[in-house]
Amino acid sequence: MTKKKLDLDYLTQLGNLPLTRKEKKLFQKQLEDSISYVEILKELDVNKIEPAVQVTKLINVYRSDKAGKPLSQKQALSNAAKVKGGYFVTKRIKWE
């Protein structure tokens, strides 16, 4: 078997995307095709070029040091899937 250009298991982990087996098979080919296309860039030498960080040349953007009006707790929770006692409810997060 030829070496795969993309490690889809790793990418689904990075993107936190649960994929079905069927989707994985489909995406493997599609994403490898897309990557092959963008490799056209390697034809251009960028050795001595500084990367663009932003394009409008703004520097030191601050806002005035005044407190704005935040969302109320009720508003902030209004779209949550699950709420308890004024908090978002999440699954347990555990590092292994």
């Binding site: 990418l11 993107g15 995307l17 599609q30 897309s34």
Partner: peptide
Amino acid sequence: RKNFGQEAKRRIMLGSHV
């Protein structure tokens, strides 16, 4: 996240890759 459409999923994965 499982409910992202196919195009969004492809873009997330290619973006994560690059």
